[in-house]
C-alpha cells in the first residue's frame, strides 16, 4: 500500500495514507489499523486512526541502547506491514441504527436549518435520516464520531456564539457535517435533535457505541419513544 511515515513526536509517528477525506483512503486506514492491532508488539503502546492515516505511539526507550534511532527501527517494521496490507483487508462493515427525536426542545435549531435551506422541518428530518453515514474516525471527545455523507442540501453554518453546554446525545449540523455529542460539551453546532442512546460507556468493551468503518443510520422517533428508549439505557 502506498504510504509515507513521518515523526509525530519523539515517541510517536504518523503513517500517512492519503490527502483527502474519501472512502478509499478510509479503507486503507482501517486495513492498516486492523493489521497493527493483530501484531501484539510489546513496544507498540497504541494506534490512533484518523481521516488520512494513523498515529502509532511506541516505547522509544525499549530500543535503547542497541539501536541509535527508535524511530528508524519502528518505521522500518511498520513499513513492512503497510507494504503487505491489502486495502480491502479490513472491510465488512456493520450498520448502526441511531434513534433521534427531532425538533422541539431536543432540536431547537431545526427551524434554523430549515430556514437557511428553504426547506420545511419535515424535509430536513427526511434528508438527515435518509442518508447512510460513514464513521471515518473518533475524536474530539470520547465516542464522538466524525461522520461523512450528509446531504449538502441541509448544510448550515455554525451558530455565531457557541452554546456553553450541549446535552449528551445532541444531534447537530455544522457546515456540511453532522454529528452526535456523546457527552456534555460546549459547541457551536445547530441542534436538530437528540438520541437517547449512550454513545460512550466506559465499562463496556469497546466503550464506544460506534466504531470507525461503521455505517450510521438515524431514524426519527417520537418523544414518547425517546423516553421509553432512554428508560432502557
Amino acid at each position: 500500500m502506498k504510504h509515507t511515515i513521518e515523526p509525530l513526536g519523539d515517541q510517536s509517528l504518523f503513517i500517512n495514507l492519503g490527502d483527502e477525506i474519501d472512502p478509499e483512503t478510509h479503507e486503507s486506514v482501517q486495513a492498516v489499523a486492523a493489521r497493527l492491532e493483530k501484531e501484539k508488539w510489546s513496544w507498540l503502546f497504541e494506534i490512533v486512526p484518523s481521516y488520512t492515516g494513523l498515529a502509532v505511539y511506541y516505547d522509544a526507550p525499549a530500543f535503547y541502547p542497541e539501536h541509535s534511532s527508535p524511530y528508524e527501527q519502528v518505521a522500518e517494521m511498520l513499513k513492512k506491514v503497510v507494504e503487505t496490507t491489502e486495502p480491502r483487508e479490513g472491510s465488512g462493515h456493520r450498520t448502526v441504527e441511531i434513534p433521534v427525536c427531532y425538533g422541539g426542545e431536543f432540536g431547537p435549531d431545526l427551524s434554523v436549518v430549515a430556514g437557511e435551506n428553504g426547506l420545511t422541518e419535515e424535509e430536513v428530518i427526511k434528508r438527515h435520516s435518509d442518508n447512510e453515514y460513514l464513521v471515518y474516525m473518533l475524536g474530539f471527545a470520547p465516542g464522538f464520531p466524525f461522520l461523512g455523507g450528509m446531504d449538502e442540501r441541509i448544510a448550515t453554518s455554525r451558530k455565531d456564539s457557541p452554546r456553553t453546554s450541549l446535552p449528551a446525545g445532541s444531534v447537530g449540523i455544522a457546515g456540511s457535517q453532522t454529528g452526535v455529542y456523546p457527552v456534555v460539551s460546549p459547541g457551536g453546532w445547530q441542534l436538530i435533535g437528540r438520541t437517547p442512546i449512550k454513545l460512550f460507556s466506559p465499562d463496556e468493551d469497546p466503550p464506544s457505541y460506534v466504531q470507525p468503518g461503521d455505517r450510521v443510520k438515524f431514524y426519527p422517533v417520537s418523544s414518547e419513544e425517546y423516553n421509553r428508549l432512554e428508560g432502557e439505557e
Binding site: L8, G9, Q11, I21, V48, S50, Y51, L54, A55, F146
Partner: peptide, 9 residues
Amino acid sequence: LSEPVTYGT
C-alpha cells in the same frame, strides 16, 4: 483535516 496530536504538539 483532523489528525492525531500528542503531548507537546
